[in-house]
Amino acid sequence: MSRPFLKMNGLGNDFVVVDARTAPFDPSQIEVRKICDRTSGVGCDQLVSLERSTKGDARVRFWNADGEEVGACGNASRCVGWLLMEGAGTDAAVLDTRGGLLRAARAGDHRVSVDMGEPRLAWDQIPLAEEMDTKGIELQVGPIDAPILHTPGCVSMGNPHVVFFVPDAEAAPVREVGPMIEHHYLFPEGVNVGFAQVKARDHIRLKVWERGAGLTKACGTGACAALVACARRGLTDRKATLELDGGDLVIEWRESDGHVIMTGPLEIEFTGELP
């Protein structure tokens, strides 16, 4: 039996979305990898499914391209939020994810804001393998007396992130360092690796090596984590434009309730059927 899907993207971070609210969909790791494969499959950064939920408008599941199911994906949440709002004819939707309930709202034409909730900042919430101050953990890359990267911040947005502060994101060794840090022993569940260049109090240039997906054009939770990490260090204000390879996101870490709000565009690419 074939299964319809919708191909969408948020700033080039692309997804295959399957509606499983009427028929079960529980792919194996091998099946996920086949769907995400850009040579022989549909090709995408993540696979997403919608299921019935008693807590929200839909239960949303996310799988990375390597087949691992993960708790959150910011750009996919904006895409799915838009789908649910379009289907119901509303201006808001609640997503029931493994990382918690996320609330989406219209922010313009094909533009959505998602309340990503409060960032988790305790070392055992990231999680780390040992207790550390997550504002700047004891981790460096390069010679002990002259490291090229050091003292990154750590944030969980329903998935783990480590954020290095760099003078030039374009020159950052993303492909070289990303895979090494992704599987570092300090991160028992693996980690998304951000390289953040602060250009102004309200402007951050960011590149992200995503856990299980590699270098992508944009990472929504990575943008949220970078803003929080920079603001905690006093490098930026609590609201900034995050400049990613695929475009810009506006991220705000609200003082009123501590929630992180992500706003940005989305696109529908095409529809198809999985074999």
Rank of each mutant, 00 (worst) to 15 (best):
R33C: 06
P173H: 02
N192H: 12
G108M: 11
G117H: 02
P24F: 14
Q140R: 15
F5W: 05
G214D: 07
D109Q: 15
E130W: 14
G247W: 04
G264W: 05
V17Q: 06
E267V: 12
A122L: 10
P265I: 09
L102H: 04
V260Y: 01
A65P: 00
P119I: 08
E267T: 05
L84R: 00
E176M: 10
H161L: 11
A58R: 01
Q29G: 11
A169D: 12
V193F: 00
R238G: 03
T97I: 06
Q29C: 15
T54F: 13
D109H: 15
E130Y: 08
G12M: 08
G272Q: 09
I204V: 13
G194Y: 00
P265K: 08
V94T: 13
A72S: 02
Q29E: 15
I204W: 02
R232H: 15
D202T: 15
G264N: 02
L149W: 04
I148N: 04
R52G: 14
S156V: 00
S113W: 00
K207Q: 15
G10C: 11
R3E: 12
L84V: 02
C73D: 00
C154H: 00
C73Y: 01
P127L: 06
F187Y: 09
L84T: 03
I148Y: 05
T221A: 11
V16W: 01
G142H: 07
E252W: 14
L186S: 04
K55W: 03
E86P: 04
N64Y: 02
E252V: 06
W209P: 05
G178M: 01
G43S: 02
V70Y: 03
T216C: 03
G194D: 02
Q46L: 13
A146P: 01
F5H: 03
D145K: 13
C224R: 11
D19I: 05
S113A: 12
A129T: 08
T54N: 14
P152K: 04
L139G: 07
G99A: 13
A65I: 01
M157Q: 02
D45S: 10
K34V: 09
V94P: 04
E86Q: 15
A76S: 07
H150N: 14
L249R: 05
R59G: 06
P147Q: 10
D91E: 14
E243S: 09
D115I: 13
H183G: 07
G272Y: 00
E130P: 06
A20M: 12
G220I: 07
G43A: 04
P160E: 02
V162E: 01
G234C: 13
P4K: 08
A93E: 01
C73L: 05
E51I: 09
C154R: 01
E31W: 09
E131Y: 02
V208M: 10
K199R: 14
Q29S: 13
V17P: 00
D202R: 14
T263S: 10
G71F: 04
R201C: 09
R33W: 12
R103W: 03
C73S: 06
S256G: 08
W209T: 06
E31T: 11
F5A: 05
D115H: 11
P27H: 07
A92P: 06
G247P: 02
M85N: 01
A226S: 03
V60G: 01
L242F: 10
R61A: 03
A129Q: 06
I251C: 12
G142P: 10
A105N: 12
V166H: 05
G71N: 06
D45H: 04
V42R: 12
A92C: 15
S28R: 13
M85G: 09
E176S: 07
A92L: 12
